[in-house]
């Protein structure tokens, strides 16, 4: 059963009875779409962010590095990617994170798995995908993000690129390790609640604008608008979408609702997901910041491998879906 059926009944009543818009009118449909999607997405955002933030209170980076420094090879990559699912990524914390991991003996490839997974798999994107495409697509996104970060990290680890990390990174020594804070369940819940508030406050204008543009496209753009130029028949659509997405710096919040209506107009889901992943996983500001710890050669290899992984996933989805 559709969990959001009551919301739909409420919105139908609101739009068609209270606003007295005709059910068949384009405007009525677009407004219905807009209100229903907004309510549904904000419910999902609140619930998912709360759960993820709660789990996150157990995963401070200071603790994560201890866990990861004991793991090697593929298991390390898997653990790192899994933890990365629950961690947000602010590009300003990339450098201390990277140095902290390397300093405490986390293998380079494992560090990369974490560094890729943290921004690539993000809870706001998962909530939006769930709201707009259903839980299967959301799960597919998380699973493919996880696989990309496991393998990209694994390959980077196998390439023995340690010499392309900036030399000063190895010279830094942490004098004293932080004592981890002990938190009660109540404090964790409070922290998670704060996080919900702050993330929703931050993303809600983007989500609303995104949904509004999406609703407009849904109502007014001609069917099959994109089938010809970016449909499955066009093999260059995936790499082009990804290459456009890589330098872009945006949050998933605004982009996903727009993409969702472009899919209705003929954009294949794989191409759309690949574009979205490219936008969230890599961005110009992040690349510039990582340059502080990675020599240019390693930086290029890193970006290339992640980009290749995303392009591959795009093709895979277009093929299986």
């Amino acid at each position: 059963m559709d969990l959001f059926y009551p919301v739909q009944i409420f919105v139908n009543w609101l739009v068609y009875s209270i606003f007295s818009l005709k059910q068949v009118s384009i405007l009525g449909e677009a407004i219905n779409f807009f209100i229903y999607d907004s309510i549904k997405i904000f419910i999902l955002l609140a619930v998912i962010i709360f759960i993820v933030s709660y789990i996150r209170t157990y995963l401070a980076p200071e603790k994560v590095k201890k866990i990861l420094s004991k793991k090697f090879e593929i298991f390390g990559n898997m653990t790192a990617s899994t933890i990365g699912i629950f961690t947000p990524f602010c590009s300003c914390s990339a450098v201390p994170l990277f140095i902290g991991f390397v300093e405490s003996g986390v293998p380079l490839g494992v560090t990369f798995s974490y560094l890729i997974a943290a921004p690539l798999i993000n809870e706001v994107a998962a909530a939006l995908l769930w709201g707009l495409f259903g839980w299967k697509v959301a799960l597919l996104y998380i699973a493919s993000g996880w696989i990309i970060s496991v393998f990209a990290g694994f390959i980077l680890g196998k390439m023995h690129l340690e010499k392309y990390v900036e030399d000063y990174v190895y010279k830094i020594k942490i004098k004293k390790n932080l004592k981890l804070e002990k938190k009660t369940q109540k404090e964790r819940a409070k922290e998670a609640y704060q996080e919900v508030k702050s993330i929703i406050r931050r993303v809600f204008p983007y989500v609303l604008i995104g949904i509004a543009i999406g609703a407009f496209i849904h109502g007014y753009a001609p069917e099959n608008l994109l089938t010809k130029i970016a449909g499955k028949g066009n093999w260059f659509a995936v790499p082009i979408a990804v290459l456009i997405g890589v330098p872009l710096y945006s949050n998933a919040a605004g982009i996903i609702p727009i993409i969702s209506s472009l899919i209705e107009k003929g954009l294949p889901l794989g191409t759309a997901l690949a574009f979205m992943m490219a936008v969230v996983a890599l961005s110009l500001p992040e690349i510039i910041i990582l340059r502080k710890v990675l020599k240019i050669r390693l930086l290029i290899i890193y970006v290339a491998i992640v980009t290749a992984g995303i392009i591959f996933t795009g093709y895979l989805f277009n093929w299986i879906l």
């Binding site: 401070a60 450098v95 140095i99 300093e103 010279k171 942490i174 390790n177 932080l178």
Partner: peptide, 22 residues
Amino acid sequence: DIAKIMEYGVMSTPALVIDEKV
């Protein structure tokens, strides 16, 4: 300075240190 920050063992910024205690 990132090296100085790291000396305190801090990996997630911002951090607050009072009298050399994080």
